[in-house]
Design a protein around this nucleic acid. Structure first.
Lengths: 111, 111
DNA sequence: GGCTGATACAACCGTATGGTTGTATCCATG
DNA sequence: CATGGATACAACCATACGGTTGTATCAGCC
């Protein structure tokens, strides 16, 4: 279960509005770090750090493109995240549904 | 768009293995904070803080039950989180799919 | 009312995080 | 090969976070 760390990284990476916006913007995979940085009210280095966080979480990749590096959202990484969430929500929801019945029964019994 | 903060909170709350486990355990809604705390290798207060984080994110609720408070996973909060993720993934995936075609075309042109 | 179990809260500590500025490295191009 | 644009990295600062211990509050029960 060494993916526990990765789960933390993925959710952690998504827990920041700037980073979520970077993911969205990087879907096109047309902008370099500098262009990306120009869009946010913070320094180049700060955006660079955000990109690094996303990269460690496997949500984006960087790729040389001429003289600048292009940031591109990693659809595989995203779908991994997606499957993760699905799995969680599925198992949670399954139990919740059963519990909800239980609670309803309990309430009926309660009243 | 005041839910931006909430999104941060939800993802942030999920970015910790202990908290995810608490959510899972609290689905039954049968354990008090103390029982919950007994399951993790950390102090009562630490678990209490984790529960508080989940509560602020709307993922669990606390409810009096006799002399102890029972922690219960909030299915509504969870489904809100779920919808959030769905929305993100949907918009992202939609663009990704289009972009993937684009990339494929580019590659064919490239090689 | 007073005891006691259970929860809440406050103060503190070490470390991680998000931001800054400055410097170094890299590489396409002239 | 030298220049310059673009990225990477290091050092630093403030604040947030995850954990601890200790104390206060709250509610049930005798």
């Amino acid at each position: 279960m060494d993916n526990a760390l990765d789960i933390d990284r993925v959710f952690g990476a998504l827990a920041d509005a700037t980073r979520r916006d970077i993911v969205r913007r990087a879907i096109g995979g047309q902008e370099g770090v500098a262009e990306l940085a120009g869009r946010y009210p913070m320094s180049f280095a700060a955006v660079q750090k955000h990109v690094a966080v996303l990269e460690r979480a496997g949500l984006v990749t960087k790729q040389r493109m001429g003289r600048c590096k292009v940031v591109r959202t990693n659809s595989e990484g995203l779908s991994v995240a997606r499957r993760l969430l699905d799995r969680y929500e599925e198992s949670w929801r399954g139990r919740i549904d059963r519990m909800t019945e239980l609670v309803t029964d309990t309430k009926e019994k309660d009243v």
